[in-house]
Design a protein around this nucleic acid. Structure first.
Length: 268
DNA sequence: CTATTTGTTTATCC
DNA sequence: AGGATAAACAAATA
């Protein structure tokens, strides 16, 4: 489920441990979420260290312990982070558990295991945090950059382009649909066929959807207002809140896409 | 039983 | 070469 704002929500669930020390680490090294990770080094490296930083960049979260212990978490499709009381029972898909000095436990749970854990012990940023693109809500994310990228991916449907994490970090399936719905652009339109004026609208809607999602979802996972596409998109028979007509669901760019044909009339 | 899934990586085809 | 697309990953849910 996790896109930009859901990731931020989960980041905060572990951020309650900032200032606390890790007493012990439990994990099952065989699980796919640890693919490529030196789990033995992770277990010994984090033990005794204090969490000093809890951050997210797009869908990639990372926590720093002490001066040189870095733990990365990506939630994939079904990953979750939470903090439980000492007496809480473990659950089936708990893959990583950090027991704090207070007794509370930070848990990473992921049933489908498309998520992953990363680990590094180094002075500066680990290589997997270097060269990240500007975050979509930062000043460094500019229209000119988006404009150039749409030309670079001119043949791909705009829906697929918005999902590319190298330029739109954090944008996921429902956010891409929400953006195109607000901008009134049909999702299968090739990016290169979108004119400059409409690109300006897409840019503004992109920022607005990210900002709104952060405000509504990140603090407590509130249900978005009914005038978002969000509440209508999941089930068959959904109705467009703007037109009152049926939403359509089809596969575009390899992903299930929900859109409102009468409303999203821009075809480039 | 089958079909579906809010993500990413790898393979394959142009 | 490089962009576009499909497949694979895995388990829960309908």
């Amino acid at each position: 489920m996790p896109e930009l704002a859901e990731v931020e929500h989960y980041r905060r669930r572990w951020a309650v441990a900032v200032g606390e020390r890790v007493e012990r680490v439990f994990l099952n090294a065989e699980k796919r979420v640890f693919r490529g990770v030196d789990t033995a080094a992770l277990v010994t490296g984090l033990a005794g260290e204090r969490m000093v930083e809890a951050r997210a960049h797009g869908k990639q979260m990372y926590y720093r312990f002490g001066e040189r212990q870095w733990l990365g978490v990506h939630l994939g499709m079904t990953g979750k982070l939470f903090c439980v009381e000492p007496e809480a029972a473990g659950e089936k898909h708990d893959h990583l558990r950090l027991v704090l000095d207070s007794g509370r436990v930070l848990v990473f749970q992921d049933s489908r295991m498309f998520g992953r854990v990363l680990y590094a012990a180094c002075e500066g940023l680990p290589e997997w945090l270097q060269g990240l693109p500007p975050e979509v809500l930062s000043d460094a994310f500019t229209f000119e950059q988006m404009d150039a990228f749409l030309d670079c991916r001119a043949g791909a449907p705009i829906k697929a382009v918005l999902l590319m994490q190298g330029v739109f970090p954090g944008v996921g399936n429902w956010m891409a649909d929400e953006i195109l719905w607000r901008a009134r652009v049909a999702p299968m339109v090739p990016a290169g066929r979108i004119g400059r004026r409409k690109r300006r609208e897409i840019f503004a809607c992109l920022q607005a959807v990210c900002r709104d999602a952060m405000r509504v979802i990140a603090p407590d996972w509130s249900r978005p207002p009914e005038d978002w596409l969000f509440n209508h998109r999941w089930r068959d028979g959904g109705i467009c809140p703007r037109t009152g007509r049926a939403l359509r669901r089809e596969s575009i760019g390899g992903r299930t896409t929900c859109w409102s044909p009468a409303w999203q009339c821009y075809r480039g």
